[in-house]
Simulated assay, not measured.
Amino acid sequence: MSDTLQLTADGRLRHLLSIEGLSKPLLTDILETAEQFANSRNSRGRKFPLLHGKTVVNLFFEASTRTRMTFELAAKRLSADVLNLQIAASSTSKGETLLDTLKTMEAMQVDMFVIRHEASGAAHFFAQHAAPEVAILNAGDGRHAHPTQALLDMFTIRRHRPDFSKLTVAIVGDILHSRVARSDIHALRTLGAKEIRVVGPRTLIPAGIEDMGVTVFNDLDSGLKGADVIMLLRLQKERMVGAFLPSTGEFHRDFGLTRARLAKLPPEVLVMHPGPINRGVEIEGDVAYGERSLILEQVEHGIAVRMAVMAMILGEDTRFAGTARGDSERSTMDGRAGAGQ
């Protein structure tokens, strides 16, 4: 249902709820649009008038630093008005339902909601009940999906390894509770990755995940052998009910990326992590920001990717032909805002 709900009749983005169901040309178009934002001259802090007059509300029912801040920066750099709803101080704390919150905010003429929620399917619920002129952007829902994280991961990989058909990617750690893993797997499959591996203890590998086209490894050294990209995942202890691991120390011993393990791998192997990082658990501290790590690049690229998605959904112009605010020269960007195919 995701593909029909989040796309218009002509295949453009209407909402962004999941990577599942999106075509390779559409994913490529998003990445290429993000590339134009990232490459535009003096792009740091530069504003584009594409969403001038639009209002974007960040509705985060879960804690977030990177995702919330990069969504806010992305919207502001597109010249949108941005509101950040403090959930603890909102009427939801008094018992107001999600639907009542949505309809109340719609009455304030909001154009887009960026939603993070602990319940899988929350973004779909909002999209099903949103007014026709209101867009929903999923910033992470339960264990289900985190589509913009997958997009920024693909963007980061593509900058270093543009041919996905030659890539073996190992996703390591808490696969069971990770919405990032699911979205990355869908994106990698759609873009044609040669091999996708999931690596972790048996208790943290979901049953039937092989049906997603991945190979399962329960030994880290075997799972990393021949990998071009290592995508580490945070242990999501807040989602764990029961004993999944003897201890975080044992997890680090068996599945943590250490200097010693990294030294055994070819120097061109790339290391990624969506953050926040548990140092000394899934990754050794000085490996996190070492020369092979792309972790800070992932954070930076999140802004351009989220700008691209917002512009393609809400942007009324069909070209990035206008000038940025405060810039007297014409933009060098000739991409397409709103051209989602």
Rank of each mutant, 00 (worst) to 15 (best):
M1E: 01
T4E: 14
T4Y: 12
L7K: 15
G11C: 10
L16D: 04
I19P: 09
L22G: 00
K24E: 12
D29K: 11
D29F: 00
E35T: 14
F37W: 03
P49T: 13
T55V: 14
F61S: 03
A63K: 13
T65P: 09
T67V: 06
L73S: 15
L73Y: 11
A74H: 03
K76N: 12
K76D: 07
L78F: 06
S79V: 03
A80K: 02
A89T: 15
G95N: 04
T97I: 09
D100S: 13
K103S: 05
M105T: 10
I115L: 15
E118P: 07
A119R: 11
A122K: 06
A122P: 02
A123N: 09
F125G: 07
G140Q: 08
R143D: 11
H144W: 04
T148N: 04
Q149N: 06
R159Y: 06
H160N: 07
R161C: 02
R161N: 04
P162G: 00
P162L: 03
D163A: 07
L167I: 14
V169A: 09
G173A: 04
R182F: 10
D184P: 05
A187K: 03
A193G: 08
E195F: 10
P201M: 10
P201G: 02
L204D: 06
L204V: 09
I205Y: 07
A207N: 15
G208K: 08
V214I: 03
V216D: 01
G223D: 09
G226M: 04
M231A: 03
L232Y: 01
M240A: 08
V241K: 11
V241S: 13
G242W: 06
P246N: 12
T248Y: 02
G249N: 11
R259P: 02
R259W: 13
L270H: 02
V271Q: 08
H273E: 14
P274I: 05
N278A: 09
N278I: 01
G280S: 04
D286A: 11
E291R: 14
V299E: 08
A304Y: 02
A304N: 05
R306G: 07
M310L: 15
A324R: 11
D327W: 08
E329P: 00
T332W: 15
D334V: 15
G335V: 14
G340R: 14
Q341T: 10
Q341N: 13
